[in-house]
Nucleic acid binder design. Structure first.
Lengths: 226, 226
DNA sequence: GCAAAAACATGATATATGTCATGCAATTTG
DNA sequence: CAAATTGCATGACATATATCATGTTTTTGC
């Protein structure tokens, strides 16, 4: 059983506001889990009963639309928490969480988190700020979905992926998504996504190395996203 | 200067968690304002420095997209608070607020709200729940924008308007939006919105009484939205 | 290492939706 | 009250994007 006080990830999350005592207490309540790429952490409608702290790896938060297609609403990485919203609203999960890479997560039960809420104001303020950040992002994406073309959204998404998850030594995007997953982020058909990637490739905006992607002309992509 | 303790609206908002003393104190800090239909309460980018409590009337929260079109992200009615997110994130407003009807609002400065956050846990928990509700709604709308057709979105929006704002004695929707505003909610061109309304009208799903709208076959509209 | 499945790619075609143009109705303004 | 502006409505047309079809490449599982 790892010690939360020594967990590096703590520094990036709302948990950084917790005292040493609180962290020790949390370490005794938490459960660590390894999750394989492709595995589901929880599904839409599940009652979660706590939050997951992502120690390593990235997962996608998706929602199934009535047309049978999955939409990727959000990506969550190291240091972030999963399931905060459901916990606070006291509702079943609105989104599913599926690992995009092998992950290390810790589950902290709701009762524990609520205790922190009551006794540590900096902590609850931190969680609030995170959720407010998510809300702002969601509003922005909503506007993009409603007002931008698929091409524009793809351009913006590529930049987002580079900024948020970085690149490997060879310049390829660190977070490797399938064409289908990229399509599911921008809300389009897989074929359309593939076609546009080919087009960007021909224009020299990006380079396709197998299924990996290198952003070549970032400024032009940015302008394309308007 | 009205007394917050006696304000009916208080019962619908997060302020219901405040004590009598806190309400008295708030009454001394607040500023009441009348806002005319069409007037802007604040604009994207403004530093607000507090929250507005909506005592009466409805406003739209919009965001300007780079294509020059306004997108309606959210509607806010009696009892709800404006600018909570910006206040908590300590950022300028991400959205503009424009009155859709004549409004009565009270402005409460940030310092006051932060005091309540620190001393009253039920209050901060209430605000958190509201924001979590907004986040869920935003995620759901995002998926609809990405996955549903304009026709489906229009059907869902009409139902939403009926459920949220109710109907007049003659069955027309209480909240009267222009065609342009409805288009701006569902993220489409005004002409497309008008055409679909005509189509729904011909199909008997709705009835157009001048610019007012009556939902006639709610169940069919629901099914159409899937 | 091979069969099967999944992911990627591209063409042909259909269709939903945006854009431009025009006219009428309703509302505002001087 | 007339004039002007704004909102509503509809047609014609352009185009972005979805869908269907097919082939190739890559990955997976035994």
């Amino acid at each position: 059983m790892g010690k939360c006080e020594q967990c590096i990830v703590r520094e990036f999350s709302s948990f950084k506001a917790l005292t040493k005592d609180e962290l020790v207490h949390m370490a005794n309540c938490k459960t660590s889990k390894t999750i394989r790429k492709g595995e589901t952490i929880f599904s839409e409608g599940d009652t979660i009963g706590g939050v997951f702290c992502v120690k390593d790896g990235v997962c996608k938060m998706t929602k199934l639309s009535s047309n049978g297609r999955d939409q990727i609403v959000h990506l969550v990485k190291r240091g972030e928490l999963l399931g905060q919203r459901s916990m606070i609203s006291d509702e079943p999960a609105n989104l599913s969480a599926v690992a995009l890479e092998d992950m290390q997560v810790c589950f902290i039960p709701k009762s524990e988190i609520l205790t922190f809420f009551n006794q540590n104001n900096r902590f609850s303020m931190g969680v609030m700020k995170t959720i407010c950040g998510d809300l702002k992002q969601a509003d922005d994406i909503m506007v993009n979905m409603a007002q931008k073309t698929v091409k524009e959204r793809l351009a913006l998404t590529l930049i987002y992926l580079e900024d948020t998850f970085g690149t490997n030594a060879d310049g390829t995007l660190k977070l490797q998504l399938s064409r289908d997953e990229i399509a599911s982020m921008i809300g389009t058909a897989t074929e359309s996504c593939i076609r546009l990637l080919s087009e960007f490739n021909k224009l020299g905006l990006i380079e396709l190395v197998g299924k990996k992607i290198v952003v070549r002309q970032r400024a032009k992509l940015e302008r394309m996203g308007e």
